[in-house]
């Protein structure tokens, strides 16, 4: 069960407290991060039930304690090929716009606490992943972690459509 998260406030009244927390994870050789506030649960990979005629990065659905949750292959979403998922792979369950969905990644690495001012914009360079998916770059020691924009990754499967249901 979710423990109370005792994180610094990022509420609108807390203009001064400016650290944010992210969960970082690995896909292939690269490190990515997403906002910890979106994360609901992290679980090991289990076989999904495939939904017919979907994009190939949509892996199907899982039963999460009675709720049906769609699972997406992040590597494939980036256009880097399908993941051959094994028991050692990890699914991060996130909430976006009132919906739950799971992201298949290779492994979870760390929890990062970052000064908001340290998050750098994504440089406009040629690289395999669509720039729209990236929200920023977090320097960690000598290397860096790429901050993902969950909203853009699943722009066609999420918040926009979820609003009607609510």
């Amino acid at each position: 069960m979710a423990e109370p998260l005792d994180l610094p406030s990022i509420g609108p009244d807390a203009a001064t407290a400016q650290t944010r927390q992210f969960i970082s994870f690995r896909v292939g050789e690269d490190e990515f991060a997403i906002d910890i506030m979106a994360v609901r649960e992290i679980k090991g990979w289990t076989e999904t039930t495939v939904l017919p005629n979907q994009q190939d990065y949509m892996l199907g659905v899982l039963n999460l304690r009675g709720t049906i949750v769609p699972i997406f292959d992040l590597r494939c979403r980036f256009g880097l090929g399908l993941t051959t998922a094994t028991r050692s792979h990890v699914v991060i369950i996130v909430a976006i716009g009132g919906r739950l969905l799971g992201l298949l990644v290779d492994a979870v690495s760390d929890i990062l606490t970052v000064n908001a001012a340290d998050i750098r914009p994504v440089p406009d360079v040629d690289q395999p992943i669509d720039n729209a998916f990236l929200a920023g770059i977090i320097p960690v020691g000598d290397s860096m972690v790429v901050l993902l924009s969950l909203e853009n990754l699943f722009a066609n499967h999420g918040p926009a459509n979820a609003a009607i249901a609510a």
Partner: peptide
């Protein structure tokens, strides 16, 4: 169970259920 709580409508599928083994069936 509704698929559309967390996902979009899937043509040809009206909903889902959970089978005895815990797996989802469409």
């Amino acid at each position: 169970k509704s698929l559309q709580d967390n996902y979009d409508p899937v043509p040809g599928i009206s909903g889902a259920t959970i089978l005895g083994n815990g797996r989802v069936a469409l």
